[in-house]
Design a binder for these strands. Sequence first.
DNA 1: GGGCGGTACTG
DNA 2: CAGTACC
DNA 3: GCCC
Length: 770
Amino acid sequence: MTAASKSDKARFFEELYRLNEFESDGEPNEAREFLKTCSKPILSRTSEEPSLIPPRKVLKPFKKVPSIQRSISEPEKIKDVPNATVGSIGKRSGLRGNPQVPAASGSLLGKEASSSAGSADSTNQRPSIEDRRTVSNPVPNTLVLTNSTGIDTMLGKKRKKDTIKLVREADRIFNGFEFFFLRNDDKSPLRKRRITLSREHGAIWTTTWTNKITHLIVDNDLTRKDVLTYLKLNSLPPQVIMVNEEYLSDCFVQRRVMNSLLKKYQVKDPDAGAAKQMAPPPPASENSDSSLQLKAPQSKLSRWGNPPQQETLPRIAQARPASYPQQPVVTGGPEALSPREATTLSDKDGSMVAETQDFGALTEWIQLAKDTEGLPLDNEDEDAVDSVDHSDSDDGGASPLRAPAKRIKRFAIKQGGTNQANFQCMTGGTAASTANPNDYTISVLERLGAYYKRIGDQWRPTAYQKACGMLRKQDHLICTYEEAIEIRTIGHRLAKKIVEIATTGRLRRLESAEADPTDAPLKLFVGIYGVNTTLASEWLRQGHRTLDDLVKNVKLSENQKLGIEHYDDLQQRIPREEVTALGQYIKDAAAALDPDIEIIIGGSYRRGAPTSGDIDIIISKPGTTSTTSLTPFLHSLITHLTSQKFLVAALAVPHDDGTGSKWHGCCVLPSKPRQSQIWRRIDFLLVPASERGAALLYFTGDDIFNRSMRLLANKMGMSLNQRGLYENVMRDRWTRKKVTEGRLVEGREERRIFERLGVPWREPWERVLH
DNA sequence: GGGCGGTACTG
DNA sequence: CAGTACC
DNA sequence: GCCC
C-alpha cells in the first residue's frame, strides 16, 4: 500500500462508505421483485478462476532436502518466550529454507488459458503479482482476469470483457473464498462495485449455487427467509457463511477477514424470535459462573509465570465461547421439507438422502428411513425427538416390543447377527455449529469427559462423547431422568448427571474433579503436543507443576519441546476462514508443481465446523494406485512450502521406505505480519486415487463416526481402514488381530463404502457425532 | 462381565 | 516395544 | 461410561 497515493486511498474509502449508505434503505420494492425471480433457475456461472499460473511440470528429480526432515522453530520466536531457561530449547537450528525455488513468485508468467481445463472445478490458482497494473495484453507480472469459465468456453459463449486488477498479494484477504451474492447479479452499480472489489481481493464470484461456495453475501434488505426461499433450501449448509453487506465493507476497510459471527454481520431473521429456547443459563447461574462456566481462556503465556503479553495486532477471529449460535436458528416447519437438489449435486443414485441440519431434523430422519427402506434400519431416534406418533411403521414384525410410546431404546432387527441400527453411523448427527438447547449440558459433560481422558480413562470419554452427540440431536432441553434415559447411549449414570446439570446448573462430580490440585497441571501437561496421560502423570508424580519445570528438569522429545515452545499457538482453534485461506495456499502451490494433483481439505473443516483444531489435507491424483507414486510430489511440495515459510516445522514425516503416507507439521499464513502469525498444526495424507473414498471417509471423521463405521464393518465380517473396505478378513481367534488383509471390496468411492455397509449416505456435516 | 477402530510415526 | 498421534 |  505504500505505493498508493493518498488521494487514491481517500477515494477508496469514500466509495466504500457510499456503498453502504445507499443500498441499505434504497429501493424498497426491490425485494419483492427479487422474490418473483426466484423461480428461475440459477444457471450461468460467470465467475472466473483467477489462475494465471502456466501449466508446467516441475518434476525435477527429488533431492534430499532438509525441509522434509524434522525441523524446529525459528530462533526469532524464542524471544517471545519470556523465560530465560527456555532459550535452551530454542537454540536448535532454524528451519533451513531451501534457497532454491525462488520460483513461485518470480517466475510466473502472466496468463494461462487451459491449464486448469482438465479439472474445471479443481482449484483456482493464485496469481502472483505485485502491482496493480491493468494490461489488456498479458505480460509477465501482470494479471488480467476475464470472465471466462470452462462452461462458457465450451458453449462458445461470448465472453464479456471484464477486467479486474487484483490488489497486491498481501491484501488479497479473500483468497480461496468463493462468494455467492444475493441478489445475484451485478446490475446494481453498487453491488457490482462490491463484487469487483471482492474479486480484486482474491474472491471468486459465483452465480451458480455450488458446494464450493464459502460465503453468501446478502443484500441488506433481504431476510434469511428470502435467502432460503430463493435458494430453495430448507437450511443452509453449515459450511456456508452467510453475512450481510456490511461484512464486506468492514473487511475492505480493515483489510482483513472479519469475524463473520459478529452480530452486525448477521442477515436479518424476523423468525429468529420464534426460535427454540436456547440452553438454559442454569437457574443458579450466579453460582455456577464461578465454578462451572467455561473460564475465559488463560491469557497468553500466563502459564509461564510471566505477565501476559499484550496482543496488539488484530487476528482473524476471536475465540468463541463453547456454545454460540452460528446462524440464527430457523424454525422452518418440518412440513416445508422439499427436495434439496442444490446440496446433493454429486449424487448419482437417486436414493440418497438430502441434507439437513436444523430442527427439521425429525422429518428428515423419517424421510431417511423411507429412503433406505429395505435396509434393516429402524427409526428409533425419531421418537425420542418429538411426540410424533412413532407407530414403528414397518419394522417387519421383527420388533419384539411395540411399546405404547415408551421405552423403545432398541430394536431387534438383525442382519447377520448384528443389530445394525444401533450403530451411531446409521443415524448421523447434526452439525456442531447449530445451536441447541442442550448446549450447556453438553459443555459440562464434555468437560467431565475431558477430565476422564486426561486421567487416563480409556472408555468413559468416548461414552461421554457419544452422549453429547445424541444430546445435540435433541430439539429441546433434556431435563428429566425419563427423557434422558430414553436416549440411546445414555444410561443410568449419564441420565442422572444430565438431570443434575439441567436442573441445578452444576455437576458436583466435575467440580470435585477439577478441584483436585493436580488437575490443573495435568491439564496443562496433556495440552502439550506429544504428551498424554502416562507422561503427564509421571511428571506430576515427580513433582513438576509448570512448563518451566519440564523445560528445566525433564528429558523431552523434539516434538514435545516444540509443543511447549508453541503451546499457546497450538492450543488455539483455527477460524474456518483461515483454514480456507491456508488450504488455498496449498492448492496454489500444489497446482504450480503438478496441475493434476488434487487437494482436499478434510477433517472438521469438511464437516462444516466453524473452527478447526488443525488443517487436514488430502493429496491425491487421478490414476494413481499407490502411495509411493505420490511421495515424490509430497517431497517437492514440502520443500516448496518450507522455502516459502509456509511450513515452519515437521513433527512426523513418512517412513523413508517410500510407503509412508502422512506428514505432520506446523504452518503459518505467510501473508500475515510475522507477529500475528499463529502456528497451526497441519497434516498431509497421501492418497492414491484407488483409495480416495476410504481416505476421505477416514479423514472426514469424526472420531466417533469412524469407530462406528469400522465396528460395523467388523461385525459384518469385514474390515474398514483408511485404504478401503475389506472382506474375508481372517482374525486371530484369541487376540482378534487381523491375520489376513482380506479382499478389497471398495476403496475408491466414499459412497460405495456406505452402500456396502448398508449405511445411508451421510453428508460430511452429518457425521458430527460428538 | 467382556467388548469398545485401525493405523502410522517416534524414540 | 510403549506412547502418542490422526480421524 | 454404555451395550450386549
